[in-house]
Nucleic acid binder design. Structure first.
Length: 580
RNA sequence: GUACCCAUAGCUCAGCUGGAUAGAGCGUUAGAUUGCGGAUCUAAAGGCCGGAGGUUCGAGUCCUCUUGGGUACGCCA
């Protein structure tokens, strides 16, 4: 909610009360309860207030109320059927707004609604038996973006990762390495560590089809690992290091970072302890075979096993330990788990268990459940080898961007072809992934994502580059505009009014994105700004203009737009490019 | 079988707490360049918002039922 909208709410609320007083009706309205919207067409006005809700109190039609209210207002207010439409003096709004944007710079759009609240965000959570794939990329970009958005809303953020480095699946790649690896290393093979290890995981799958004893051998290895066998532990250490180093390289390339990294191998003990404590408190119960359970039938979550009959821990047990360890490390007020929607049941159970264990903060845990990423050809299936590898995809997009730059003959213009291509690829990827509401399944189309026109990352980046180019040109010939001065009242073109409104709305969008944990609101808003600016500068010369005042004013506006784009890009993990 | 999620233009997606004639992009068709980077812009065609009831002054949005799709319900993670 921008300040000019707030002001108008106040005025309309006042007029409504005045109308009620005239007619001796006992009526009051809080200005925050007033509905505010945009008229369907800009020429109808900038703000609209529907009068439907008041018909009941006033015992007349909304249309009549609108007329009576409008009569109390000035010439900028018209009654249009049941609506009151306001035409805002945008010159006045622009004067303060543009100044504010230029002064606040990268801080414009931030607010204090979360007031220093400590929020932990968990995302990514890779396994150490294979490299990242397209699904992780969605997870990573949502996690990173939501963290930045919450920070912009005034929260204190702690981004955490949880490395899944133990369990039977890890042993499978280790076993295959031991049998077929012949001592190969990332260095000797020239392969990234995560890809090398992932290859052995795939190899295990093939081998286990031929040799029925493979699965049993993997279980034996797990037992050895849990009992601390030195040889297995050493191999585990080595291969985990390879994978984690490989994955961290991918994070670096995709602009993802964490404040803290948790390892399952270090937190699962804690989970086991907590289950034992819960058992003593009779929150859990033991079956005859020794396994430990919780009965959640009263909340329709069935019953769930917490410890195997041999006393070893499970995924859920480990997550209990991790949550408690985290709260001890950093007493968060909220913890957001960015995890695929497949795991909804898991988190319902986890939160319920933590709550029954008596942790008051359990009610502040939140599962940010996001949908699957599919391909135009259909679902990704690891068995059919159609899983899109993260590194491959980034490389492919980078290659496509590079070709595009060359084909436009701009490879001489950009200062670093390789770096620029990579930034375009990243912008394309993140924008495409974030443009869709997190909760929904989506289809990822690589060719569409990297396209330079349409609703895509590169299009937005292009608008940023174009505005930058204009600002550079302005700086070059600044002297020829000397004597001119910024005058917001000159911003009378329809697109200018629209742009000012969009800029004014930006902080509210950041707020809403934070409340709903939904970066797509920001994506949509930035696209709207870019599209409007495209249309605007196409027919309205900014620099090639007789009036020096007008040049300066439009540059002032363009600079503010660029600033908002930059700020929004950051929230979406999209690199900004001054030229491309 | 039970629970949760989704269904809007040929395709990919928007549509904020219910509000004026349901919007974009891609694709299709037709246009615009002595112009700040045409990697652009303009316009047209394209919709029973899966279906049926209900609540409401008003429903793409809320409720019930129904159809179709997805996911979960492991001593896997």
């Amino acid at each position: 909610m921008s300040t000019y909208q707030q002001n108008w709410k106040k005025k309309i609320a006042g007029a409504l009360k005045a109308v009620a007083a005239d007619r001796d009706i006992d009526f009051s309205v809080e200005e925050d309860d007033l509905l505010i919207e945009k008229p369907p067409k800009p020429e109808m006005g900038d703000l609209a207030f529907p009068m439907f809700p008041y018909a009941r109190f006033f015992k007349t039609s909304p249309g009549k109320i609108a007329k009576q209210v409008a009569a109390k207002m000035g010439s900028d207010t018209t009654a249009a059927g049941p609506y009151i439409n306001i035409t805002v003096d945008m010159g006045e709004v622009a004067e303060d707004l543009l100044k504010q944007i230029h002064e606040e710079g990268e801080e414009f759009g931030r607010n204090t609604s979360l007031n220093g609240q400590k929020i932990m965000v968990e995302f990514s959570c890779p396994n150490t038996n294979k490299p990242l794939h397209l699904g992780h990329l969605r997870n990573d970009t949502i996690g990173e973006s939501v963290s930045r958005i919450l920070f912009a809303n005034g929260a204190c953020i702690n981004k955490v990762n949880l490395i899944n480095d133990r369990g039977i699946h890890i042993c499978k790649s280790m076993l295959a390495y031991k049998k077929f690896g012949e001592g190969v290393t990332p260095e000797s093979s020239g392969k990234k560590g995560d890809h090398l290890v992932g290859g052995f995981y795939v190899k295990f799958g093939k081998w286990s089809k031929e040799d029925p004893s493979a699965e049993e051998q993997a279980r034996e290895m797990l037992r050895l690992w849990e009992s601390g066998d030195p040889e297995v532990t050493e191999l585990w250490n080595t291969m985990n290091r390879w994978t984690i180093e490989g994955i961290e390289e991918t994070y670096k390339k995709t602009g993802i970072s964490f404040d803290k990294k948790y390892l399952e191998s270090e937190t699962y003990f804690r989970g086991r302890e907590l289950v034992h404590e819960g058992l003593e408190k009779e929150i859990f119960y033991r079956e005859e075979d020794g396994s430990v359970w919780i009965d959640l039938n009263d909340v329709k979550l069935d019953r769930k096993v917490l410890l195997r009959s041999d006393g070893t821990t499970l995924y859920l047990t480990q997550d209990i330990g991790t949550a408690v360890a985290r709260h001890d490390d950093w007493p968060f007020e909220r913890l957001i788990y960015v995890v695929a929607s497949e795991q909804q049941y898991h988190f319902q159970v986890l939160f319920e268990v933590l709550s029954r264990l008596g942790f008051p903060w359990a009610k502040n845990l939140h599962h940010l459940s996001y949908g699957m990423v599919n391909l135009p050809e259909g679902k990704m299936k690891s068995r059919e080898g159609t899983v899109v590898d993260a590194d491959d995809l980034v490389a492919e997009l980078t290659g496509m961007a590079k070709e595009e730059i060359k084909s436009k003959g701009r490879d001489e213009e950009v200062d670093n072809l390789e770096a620029t291509s990579a930034k375009i690829a990243l912008g394309a990827l993140n924008y495409y992934l974030l443009q869709v509401s997190p909760t929904k399944d989506m289809i990822f189309n690589p060719a569409e994502s990297i396209s330079f026109n349409g609703n895509t990352g590169p299009y937005l980046q292009y608008m940023g580059a174009r505005i930058s180019s204009m600002l550079r040109k302005y700086e070059e010939r600044k002297e020829s505009y000397s004597g001119g001065k910024v005058d917001s009242r000159l911003l009378t073109v329809a697109e200018e009014r629209e742009l000012i409104k969009l800029l004014a709305e930006y902080p509210g969008i950041v707020n809403r994105a934070g409340e709903d944990l939904n970066p797509s609101f920001i994506a949509a808003h930035l696209y709207e700004i870019c599209k409007t600016f495209s249309r605007y500068y196409h027919d309205n010369p900014v620099l090639h203009n007789e009036s020096k005042d007008l040049v300066k004013t439009r540059i002032h506006l363009s600079g503010a737009i660029l600033q908002v784009l930059k700020n929004g890009f950051f929230l979406l993990g999209m690199p900004f490019l001054p030229t491309m």
